[in-house]
Design a protein around this nucleic acid. Structure first.
Length: 197
DNA sequence: TCATTAATTCGCC
DNA sequence: GGCGAATTAATGA
């Protein structure tokens, strides 16, 4: 979200993470701004019995966890690379400095934060009260909103069923059952196990 | 071709 | 809708 040249000018460095590598953990103190150059990252939590809930998944060009740089608190979630990734890492002071000296950048940051809040708003209501079809449909709609082609079945869901399940708090089996039901209802299409929405 | 990982199925609660 | 186990398909050394 922030121009790479500017990141570098304010002290950012590229870090490489292997798939599965942890970038930061719950209860760590936020001391860096992270922006993905290339790769994929998930923010998650684990319940006591080991179940994973995915807060969000980010890919190329996205930053993550920056809201925590504005409050004096520990991270409430983990960040894990889910593919081999190259990520810009800039110190908190560099980030705050950058935001203070560049109005356009801070506006940009506001927009990112607002986007995250929007996602939380729609998901929270939906995950609290709705049935599996509604939960998955909302998630798919949200994912597709970043896709230029709005035609039906034009968007291949870039996530595994397990990841979908972890994003909406369902089990894989339920996601599989529900996705099949949605295919019957012509809401999506399945080809070679890939989901097209 | 073997190994790994994801998807799917099944029976039961 | 969740759970555990078993089967099958896809993918990539």
């Amino acid at each position: 979200m922030i121009i790479e040249d500017l990141l570098i000018a304010f002290g950012a460095e590229i870090q490489h993470y292997k798939a599965g590598e942890i970038i930061f953990r719950e209860e760590d103190l936020p001391v860096y701004y992270y922006q993905i150059e290339k790769g994929k990252v998930k923010l998650n939590n684990y319940t006591e019995d080991g179940k994973e809930f995915i807060q969000n998944i980010f890919s190329d060009g996205h930053s993550f966890g920056e809201s925590l740089l504005f409050v004096d608190r520990q991270y409430p979630m983990n960040a894990v690379a889910i593919e081999d990734s190259s990520i810009f890492r800039m110190s908190k002071s560099g980030f705050l400095n950058l935001v203070q000296t560049n109005p356009e950048i801070s506006l940009n940051v506001y927009q990112c934060l607002a986007e995250r809040m929007y996602y939380k708003y729609i998901m929270f209501y939906n995950l609290s009260f709705q049935n599996p079809v509604s939960k998955l449909k909302l998630l798919l709609d949200y994912l597709k909103s970043y896709h230029d082609d709005k035609a039906p079945y034009s968007f291949q869901i870039p996530l595994t069923r397990q990841q979908l399940a972890s994003l909406v708090g369902l089990r894989v089996e339920t996601v599989i059952r529900t996705i099949k039901q949605m295919e019957k209802d012509k809401m999506l299409k399945i080809e070679k196990r890939k989901i097209y929405y």
